[in-house]
Design a binder for these strands. Structure first.
Lengths: 104, 104
DNA sequence: ATATCATTTCGTTATTTTGCGAAATAAAGA
DNA sequence: TCTTTATTTCGCAAAATAACGAAATGATAT
């Protein structure tokens, strides 16, 4: 078959999530939020991660855009937490990726 | 603490794998190999994926570099299969990422 | 030796990503 | 009002990525 199908929305969407996770700084943040089941502040992170404030802010923005985290304004801080719903979605996608089955 | 620790090797390495998966074409290939528990040829893929031969070749190279697949020369073809060992490693890493626990 | 076949490498171009510091914002305190 | 504090946005430069077609490779068949 010489179909040249478009790649499915599901694959494209999952790749987007994987891409968002595919940077050490962003993965570190997600690991922290996931493992500790906690939230954190940009100011905490900047002391732990070897990157400047504005750069960190960019990464947070990307994670937010990918739907993996959400920010709650708590002046003068912003509290970042996992987006639980989307995180659960991601977990399911990953599970499926690692589960063999006959159809595609 | 104003430590600015280096990010761990584990996090950096896992980010590398995620990054390799974070492109629709590469993810499609891995999905196919994983779900069908099969191998495939570049020539098959080029008919299914909307991308040129040389571009596809580049993506295969990246997946190989990331350790996710391996190519077996079968002239005039090259048979690409999942690198089972590393794939299992990845599965474990992902599982851990989605598992809450207190320490970091 | 030459032609064919699947695939890769090369050279190039366009786009995206990463990172930084300076300036902007937004809220609260003096 | 003028600071201070936490964070983001802006503007920029450097590096990485993605994509392509043309040329190269390596193996086989004529």
């Amino acid at each position: 078959m010489k179909k040249k199908t478009e790649l499915s929305i599901e694959t494209t969407e999952m790749a987007r999530v994987l891409k968002a996770l595919g940077h050490p700084v962003r993965l570190y943040i997600i690991q922290k939020l996931s493992k500790m089941n906690a939230c954190c502040y940009s100011g905490d992170l900047v002391d732990e991660i070897p990157v400047g404030r504005s750069t960190l802010s960019q990464h947070l923005k990307e994670l937010k855009f990918a739907g993996l985290i959400q920010g709650e304004v708590e002046p003068p801080y912003i509290k970042y937490c996992l987006n639980k719903g989307n995180w659960e979605e991601a977990r399911k996608m990953f599970n499926e990726l690692f589960t063999e089955n006959e159809q595609l």
